[in-house]
Design a protein around this nucleic acid. Structure first.
Lengths: 127, 127
DNA sequence: CAGTATCCAACTGGATACTG
DNA sequence: CAGTATCCAGTTGGATACTG
């Protein structure tokens, strides 16, 4: 094991944690859940462009790491909600800050991109 | 265009920005550059597991977005340094906070993972 | 040393169909 | 409605070889 955690070392599991946070969806999900417990379908619709597969997968990953809690109501049709754990809530603060940073600085970044004249690779697909 | 930026909308370019930040390497690079201007080779060695291809690619992306500056000295052999711009420096604060969060909470997450008994998918490869 | 180009195996993630 | 399983096209990213 690594004491302390060393994200710069590829063999330290903390690198995985950074990867999860760095995933395409985790930050958005964390921000959504700041409102309280949210149903699967609501998340689906809130996060434009996420597929059911990726939503479920990311939720599973986050649940496994203890960032969120899955609450299943024994009803028909099924109703499932997700809620931040205390751990997830603390991370969601940073997620919100990230999101906020992007919203604030995005015009400046768009300007820089245009000035640079560089094509935006599909990897960072533009609209 | 989108006013204000809306990362929840897949067609808003701010989503791309989130993707860059969310990439596997940007956060680590931002943290490294907090020390000041750093040479390519130093970054290579500091960030264990990154390939030259990914390092260059990520640096280009960040340069294009105006997060870092490339400084090339007309010497032989070539010497190149990268330095945070003001914009990048502001983001690096959040990057450092993220990294710090991971370092702090990683034991708890590892515990959660074991308790869950779930296999860690290769996608979040475990050592 | 820094960077580019090419190749290609491995993985990602969307679409679809299906279950309880 | 929530979730799983399967398929597979497109992308990713490491390895290698090469240039200035």
């Amino acid at each position: 094991m690594f004491h302390p955690a060393d994200p710069y070392n590829m063999d330290c599991p903390s690198r995985d944690v950074l990867d999860l946070i760095g995933g395409k969806w985790a930050i958005l999900i964390l921000c959504c859940l700041q409102q309280g417990a949210v149903r699967t379908g609501v998340l689906m619709r809130a996060i434009n462009g996420i597929s059911q597969k990726m939503l479920t997968q990311t939720l599973r990953d986050m649940e496994r790491d203890g960032l969120i809690e899955r609450i299943s109501y024994p009803e028909v049709p099924p109703r499932v909600e997700y809620r931040l754990t205390e751990l997830g809530a603390s991370l969601s603060e940073l997620a919100r800050a990230m999101e906020q940073w992007v919203v604030t600085h995005y015009p400046e970044i768009m300007e820089n991109r245009e000035r640079s004249g560089a094509e935006i690779p599909a990897r960072l697909k533009l609209s």
